[in-house]
Amino acid sequence: MLKGILIALSLVLGTTSSAPAQTDSFIVVQSTTSTQNSGLFEYMLPKFTDQTGIEVRVVAVGTGQAIKNAMNGDGDVLFVHAKPAEKKFVAEGYGVARFDVMYNDFVIVGPPSDPAGIKGMTDATDALRKIAEARAPFASRGDDSGTNKAEMRLWKDAGIDPTTFSGEWYRETGSGMGATLNTGTAMGAYIMTDRATWIAFNNKGDYEIMVEGDPQLFNQYGVILVNPERFANVNAKAGQTFIDWLLGEEGQEIIASYKLDGQQLFFPNAK
């Protein structure tokens, strides 16, 4: 009887140990949920692997956590969107150098009832002020991610510290972009999100984009090779190959060609 179970087990264990064909060379990229949830990686990475034989393993977490993981040496490449934090990462010697890769923009989405009356505004700081005045519910990532950092900069410009209203109209979900969109739309709150995640998000309900087009909402993505002098395990060669490809003509073209519902999600801007 027990023998039967063991045989069944060994079958399961045995047949799957040969599961996906794995290349000898791989890199771990610490990145953000927006690049993953938008589908960009699934579109782009197989092309890179085909050309180079290098498998890219993406760990998609918030920018804050991605940077912390990379500071522990858990990854070869950092691909996130929080320029000041990225520069600090390089300055402190964790990364070799930072390069612009692409950008998109943030938008503020909200319910059609628009309780703060911000629809159509192009000044994000003004819009946030109106939300605060109306005490209209606002769902924040609250997770130190790139989006969260950008949102906090805008609140600062507006001269408001929303965290003093935490738990009232200002609600921090402490989760990823997708989870915050799920939560925020369910509670009728305004949410600031990157456009790529919003377009790819499938549970929009009747939500619409309320605020867009403010230069302040510009969202720059950067890429950094984790410093191999600091962490001996870093696969610097393959990591650099990936970065070069990303910044080169081919990678940039592929980024530009990625569309969802006919809309371009990311705009390459490597120099």
Binding site: Q36, E42, G176, G178, L181, N182, A200, F201, N203
Partner: peptide
Amino acid sequence: NHVTRVMTTTIALETSKG
């Protein structure tokens, strides 16, 4: 993806994608 993605993490991911 293809390395450490299991049922539960896939469910979490798809939920976050809406």
